[in-house]
Every structure is written in C-alpha cells, then in structure tokens.
Simulated scan of single mutants.
Amino acid sequence: MGALHGGHLSLVEKAREKASRTVASIFVNPTQFAPGEDFDTYPRDPEADISKLASVGCDLVYLPTVEEMYPDGNTTNVRVEGMSDLLDGVYRPHFFYGVATVVARLFLHAQPDVAVFGEKDYQQLQIIRRMVRDLGFPVDIIGGETTRDADGLAQSSRNLYLTADERIAAGALQAALHRASVRLAIGVTPSVALDEARALVTAAGFRKLDYISLVDPDTLLDLPDVPLAPGTVARLLGAAWMGKTRLIDNISATR
C-alpha cells in the first residue's frame, strides 16, 4: 500500500530471483479500512516509492486508481471464510475480505506467474495461499522473510506513526514472542508461555494487547494447551497497540 521500506524492497529482490520481470503494485485499498481507521492519513509518497523500487531493479510499478479497481456499481467480492475471522479478523472483521478481493483483482490485472508476500503479515499470506488454491489461480505464492530493525521490530509503514519513546519500547513485542518460542521449545505449556509473553508486552508500555496466540501454521487454529510434541512446527502471532499505532508480528515456534 505504499510508504515502502526495506521489507517491501526485500520482496522485490526475492521476486527477481524467481522471475525474469518484476512488477510491484501500489494501491491504498479502501476496502481494507473500516470507518474511523487511517485510510485518509495512511502515509503516501508514490514518487519516493517508485524511486526505491527502481533502486532494486523493479521493472514496472502498477498504480491503479480506485475507479479501476472498483468499477462503478461494483458488487463482487472475494471471501476466504474461516481463516479471515480468526486473530486479526476478530478485531478487524472487514480487513481480510478487502485483502482477498483486491489481491484477486491485482492478479487478474497483472497476471503474474509468482507473487511474493511478506511473512510479517502471516495471516494475510496464508489467506492468499488458500484463495489461490481454492480459486485455481495459476500463481505460485512465495513468502518473504520478515525484515527487522536492529532491535527486532518488524519493519512496517505504520512505524512512522511511533514517537521516539514509543519506537524504543515497541521492540518488546518481538522480544516477548521470541521468549515464548524458547519456553515452548523446552516443553512449557502454551498457556504458561503465552501468559508470560502477554505480561512482558503489557509491562513494556503497550496500551492494549489484542492477542498473543499459538496456532497451526497452515490453518491458523489455536493449538491445544499441551507441551509441543518433538518435531512440531507452530506459529506465534501477536498484535498490540503502542500509543495510536497497532503493531503485529509473528515468529515460528518449534520443538
């Protein structure tokens, strides 16, 4: 959606490894925003974004208008049921239906062979994978590793909203998830590891914690409250508010 940072550019670099031509779309999608959210104030700087994309070898930038993406009288939408209503979907029930709809349209417009989406938005990545499988899009979906600052904070366009003090404290979300992953790896039950992580996030100064959850990486369903069996691969996801900024993050958890 623009306001590009190093994480976005890393996706372009990964795409260039997989394809002979690379296209990036920039579109602040209105159907992902509920009334009162930051659609009008979402950071936009298309000229700077285009320059950044050119610097990493992107061949084409697609900047559709709202009218091109949503023709007058539009009544067609894409819904990935179930997965869209978990985790972030509880707090932003409109969000992933807007994502699925706009990504389906972008695929039809650009007709890519492969598409790269960041693992930072892990739920979004898994929902797009499900949509592609269910609808038969001939697109190979590739996950790009989360790009982080030195203190572990996942890079995000909304990090621009953080004050200097909030930015210092925000790294605690990733630190709490990392500690939970270490605890799970030694056999601590999920409820204990997650409660510890929630306490760390609250103590760091986050004003509201939406969730910290341990889920199956494919279905996004909560795992049972028993120690992870050896060889288990799970996913830890969290969302919390630092000041007026909602931050999300996730990491793998294994035993």
Rank of each mutant, 00 (worst) to 15 (best):
L108S: 14
L153A: 06
D225K: 08
A204E: 05
D38I: 07
N159W: 08
D134F: 06
V61G: 03
P35Y: 04
I248N: 06
S252M: 13
D40N: 12
V226A: 13
E13A: 10
I128V: 15
T202K: 15
G2S: 08
A54M: 04
Y211H: 09
K14V: 14
M242Y: 10
S51F: 06
L53F: 03
G57D: 02
P217G: 03
P230H: 15
S20G: 15
V215S: 03
V23N: 01
P217D: 02
H178G: 11
L4R: 05
V233A: 12
G7I: 13
L184D: 13
R158E: 04
M242Q: 14
V99M: 00
M83P: 01
Q111S: 11
D72P: 03
G57K: 01
E81H: 06
I251Q: 08
G171L: 13
Q111N: 11
S84V: 00
D225S: 10
I212G: 07
E145F: 04
V116S: 04
E145P: 07
P224R: 13
S191R: 15
D195L: 06
R44F: 04
E81R: 07
L200Y: 02
F39P: 08
L247W: 04
L228R: 12
V233I: 12
L200P: 00
A240Q: 10
S55C: 09
Q111D: 08
T65F: 01
V192H: 11
